[in-house]
């Protein structure tokens, strides 16, 4: 079921079972700062609190004490070129409370790659050098296109 067709009523009204859920959830950085046992998610708009609880407990094996959801409206903004109004999609947030002892801290994913700037500068220097070489090589034939060479 999940976001597909809601099943037709059958006699006895059997319990709704989802075999292939297509809900998504993404763990986002909490904003504003939360207690250490609170985790923030963005999730499918169709998910209820019970869905979120079951999703985390059954699929991710994460115990959940409480779920609070909120839907934030997407921003209205003007298109840069044409000036017409664009509305961004609404987002459903789920703030999930873990049991008392458990904590979760959002990891810093880009800690290691802080020395990227050095590498970027290095490759930039190399590119500059090779371009200079190319200019020097073709000093005496400036009007010949670059693809024409022996």
């Amino acid at each position: 079921m999940s976001t597909r067709w809601y099943p037709i009523y059958q006699r006895g009204n059997p319990q709704l079972r989802v075999f292939l859920p297509n809900f998504w959830m993404k763990l986002v950085r909490p904003l504003p700062k939360q207690l250490p046992n609170t985790v923030s998610f963005q999730c499918s708009m169709e998910m209820t609190k019970y869905d979120i609880k079951n999703y985390l407990e059954k699929i991710y094996n994460v115990p959940v004490v409480d779920v609070r959801t909120k839907i934030t409206m997407g921003k209205f903004r003007r298109d840069v070129g044409r000036g017409y109004v664009v509305k961004d999609d609404d987002v459903k947030y789920a703030h999930v409370v873990l049991p008392k002892g458990q904590t979760f801290e959002y990891p810093d994913l880009f800690e290691k790659s802080k020395d990227d700037d050095e590498e970027n500068m290095k490759s930039l220097e190399e590119a500059k050098k090779s371009f200079k070489n190319y200019i020097d090589r073709n000093k005496d034939r400036q009007d010949v296109p670059s693809w024409f060479s022996i």
Partner: peptide, 8 residues
């Protein structure tokens, strides 16, 4: 991993 770290 069976953890919230599975989201990463």
């Amino acid at each position: 991993a069976q953890d919230l770290m599975e989201f990463f």
